[in-house]
């Protein structure tokens, strides 16, 4: 991996963080995908060397600061997501597209589930409806990403 590629991959994470605080109209906002999770899954598949756990944790911590969630919540979820994704990467890469899609959605479910569940313990109540709808739009995004990603 060249320096430029590394910078590009990390700036992708930065863009995902930025996107997660863009104000959207009510209905669109409900369907906002978990940008960070999408970007992290992409990173693991496209550039596994760059998808370090510490980077995921740092990005998650930034996300916590940006959206005002309890510190460490998104860091925890993002670390788990990257760990899961990089350990199942070999299966994902060698499986047919529909299975790839399912696996990616499963990992995002883990991510959003951790945020919703543990966030609930720490007085960060989101609604399950919002979680499910953002999961679906995240799945669609991942599906589109797979069309462009050659792994």
């Amino acid at each position: 991996m060249t320096e430029g590629a590394v910078a590009r991959n990390y700036s992708l994470l930065g863009a995902a963080l930025l996107l997660s605080v863009v104000p959207l109209p009510q209905l669109l906002g409900l369907w906002q995908p978990p940008w960070l999770a999408v970007a992290l899954i992409w990173l693991v598949l496209a550039a596994p060397e760059d998808a370090r756990l510490a980077v995921a944790a740092a990005a998650g911590l930034l996300q916590d600061l940006l959206v005002g969630s309890p510190l460490g919540l998104h860091a925890l979820a993002a670390t788990l997501l990257v760990f899961l994704a990089s350990n199942t990467r070999r299966w994902i890469v060698s499986s047919p597209p529909w299975l790839r899609f399912l696996l990616a959605v499963l990992m995002m479910t883990v991510y959003l589930g951790v945020v919703a569940l543990i966030g609930g313990w720490f007085d960060y109540a989101g609604s399950w409806a919002a979680t499910v709808s953002s999961l679906m739009s995240g799945g669609v995004l991942i599906l589109i990403a797979f069309l462009f990603l050659k792994v």
């Binding site: 510490a54 309890p70 460490g72 919540l73 860091a75």
Partner: peptide, 14 residues
Amino acid sequence: GECLLICLLSFSLL
């Protein structure tokens, strides 16, 4: 191990 460590750290931060 790294994953476990980071998870523990962020949970204790919470």
